[in-house]
């Protein structure tokens, strides 16, 4: 089996409709998941990968219904375990393009351990975390990304749990590709998905996704035309980090501490403005970017935070196997040799 090459010679001509299944999509009307599904279905044909070589693996939660709606191979598995299952598949099957679809509860609560270990191993899988900052399928409890003080069914006087910042977490887990996108911005989402698909190794993409039933409007500040330009920091490799309708804000080094901060562009000199570089080896830069958002989500960077190259777990493992197996021509004879090794004796 050969390694998957994405974006290769796209002789294959598929369209979005080739990726639709006959299953009725059963998310709540208005759910952000519809937009993500549509984007995925229309983006996948670009990769030129035959459908049979694409696998979606999910856990449990609203987002995890995703595989049923993609006409590829798919497994709707159990809560939190999709990265582990995908790791076993990716390690034995280099010819597949493997996508994990998960949510904030699935990936960060019950499956937190598998997520961080998949990322540190740099398994060649793409992990899409639909973050709606709430538990949807269990009907409205707070999640590990819900804000402190969140009032939900299980926290009537407010949550006492401090939330995770998924991008910071992924960076801390040594992820080689970390990005963020928003469900409603299909163009930007497709750009990020494309970059994730092209990445060799674990790609982690946080997708802000609106749950219009239990946490409606959670990301409105990033979507509303009146607020979004001032709140969003679009990340583009090689471009200075200025944002706002008039590029009136800029990302610069913080005057104290080790981080970054936002200042009016007019008050800083151009060479103080950070030029975005996804490929910096030291994760400190991407981490600093991940800490920019305020409690109200203003100053939220979207796009690719980090994209670095590191050997993949599955690649290294296969290399060890290939090296060891290189001289084996007759496996049965080799097995006979193995069984007969050590101290043996013969009874006549």
């Amino acid at each position: 089996m050969s390694e998957t090459s994405v974006g290769g010679p796209g002789r294959l001509t598929l369209s979005a409709k080739d990726f639709k299944t006959d299953q009725e999509v059963r998310w709540c009307p208005g759910c952000g998941d519809y937009a993500i599904l549509a984007t995925m279905q229309s983006f996948l044909p670009e990769l030129g990968i035959p459908k049979e070589r694409i696998v979606f693996i999910s856990g449990i939660g609203c987002s995890s219904r995703f595989p049923y709606y993609m006409d590829t191979y798919g497994v709707h598995s159990i809560h939190g375990r999709a990265p582990a299952i995908a790791t076993g598949l990716a390690t034995t099957r280099p010819d597949l393009s493997i996508w994990v679809v998960t949510g904030d509860g699935d990936a960060l609560s019950i499956g937190g351990n598998h997520l961080i270990h998949a990322l540190r191993r740099n398994v060649n899988i793409k992990i899409l975390l639909f973050n709606n900052r709430i538990y949807g399928l269990t009907k409205g409890q707070y999640s590990p990304t819900s804000e402190l003080g969140k009032i939900t069914k299980s926290t009537p006087v407010g949550s006492a749990d401090a939330p995770f910042n998924p991008v910071s977490l992924a960076l801390g887990a040594e992820a080689t590709f970390v990005a963020r996108a928003i469900d409603s911005d299909r163009k930007q989402l497709a750009t990020v998905l494309r970059a994730a698909a092209e990445h060799q190794g674990s790609a982690f993409v946080e997708i802000y996704q609106n749950c219009n039933i239990f946490n409606d409007g959670a990301f409105d500040i990033l979507k509303d035309p009146s607020s979004r330009d001032a709140a969003l920091i679009p990340l583009e490799h090689g471009r200075p980090l200025t944002f706002g309708r008039e590029n009136q804000s800029a990302v610069v080094r913080a005057p104290s501490g080790f981080g970054l901060t936002v200042r009016p562009t007019s008050e800083v000199s151009p060479d103080e403005i950070i030029v975005h570089d996804e490929t910096i080896a030291d994760p400190a830069y991407a981490f600093a970017l991940s800490r920019l958002p305020q409690a109200d989500l203003s100053h939220t960077p979207v796009g690719v935070f980090r994209r670095v190259s590191r050997p993949t777990y599955d690649g290294l493992v296969r290399e060890q196997i290939a090296t060891a197996a290189a001289d084996v021509t007759d496996r049965e004879a080799e097995l006979a040799k193995l069984l007969n090794s050590g101290d043996t004796w013969t009874i006549l």
């Binding site: 089996m1 299944t21 035959p50 049979e52 070589r53 798919g74 159990i78 598949l89 099957r93």
Partner: peptide
């Protein structure tokens, strides 16, 4: 996976 024409979804449901 990889077998053309047999794309299907399975799961715990």
């Amino acid at each position: 996976p990889g077998t053309p024409g047999l794309e299907h979804r399975i799961g715990g449901l």
